[in-house]
Amino acid sequence: MGNRKTSWLGAAVPVAVLALTLTACGGGGGDGKGEAKGSTSKLQEDKPSSREMATGESATSAFKEDDGKITYDVLAQKVDVGTEADTKKMVDDPAKAKGFVPAVAHVKYTNKGGGVVASYPSVGDNVEIYADGRRGTILIGAADDAPGCESDTDIENWKKGASHVLCETYMVPKGTKELAVHWSAEDDGEPYVWTFKTS
Rank of each mutant, 00 (worst) to 15 (best):
K197N: 14
P121A: 11
T6Q: 14
K78Y: 02
G113D: 10
I129T: 03
H182V: 02
S163H: 09
T21I: 08
T21E: 14
A146K: 04
T23I: 03
K78C: 03
T55G: 03
V107D: 02
T23A: 11
V172L: 07
K98D: 15
V116G: 02
S61Q: 04
P173H: 04
N126E: 12
G114T: 07
D66T: 13
G32I: 05
G141Q: 11
P48F: 03
S39D: 15
L9R: 03
S58Y: 02
G175D: 14
D154V: 06
A76W: 00
A62L: 06
R4P: 00
A85I: 00
G10C: 09
Y192W: 07
W8S: 06
K98N: 13
D31W: 05
K160A: 10
Q77C: 09
M1S: 13
S39R: 11
V17Y: 10
D46F: 01
E190G: 02
A103C: 13
K159C: 08
G68F: 05
A59N: 07
G99K: 11
P14T: 08
I138D: 00
K33Q: 12
P14M: 08
R134C: 06
N111H: 12
D66Q: 13
L43S: 12
K64R: 15
G32C: 12
V91T: 06
K47M: 12
N157P: 01
D125C: 01
F100K: 00
V116R: 04
Q77T: 14
E57V: 10
Q77Y: 07
S50L: 02
D73Y: 03
G115I: 12
T55W: 03
A36P: 00
V181Q: 00
I155Q: 12
V117Y: 04
S199A: 15
Y170G: 03
Y109R: 04
V15F: 11
S151Y: 07
A185N: 10
G68E: 07
R51F: 03
A143S: 15
T153A: 13
V193A: 10
G32L: 08
V13M: 09
V79T: 08
V107G: 01
E178R: 13
G2Y: 11
V123K: 00
V165H: 05
G115A: 12
D187L: 11
L75E: 10
W8N: 07
Q44A: 15
A180N: 06
A97K: 00
G38E: 05
D46R: 01
S199K: 15
T40N: 12
R4I: 05
P121I: 10
E45D: 14
S7A: 13
L9S: 02
L20H: 11
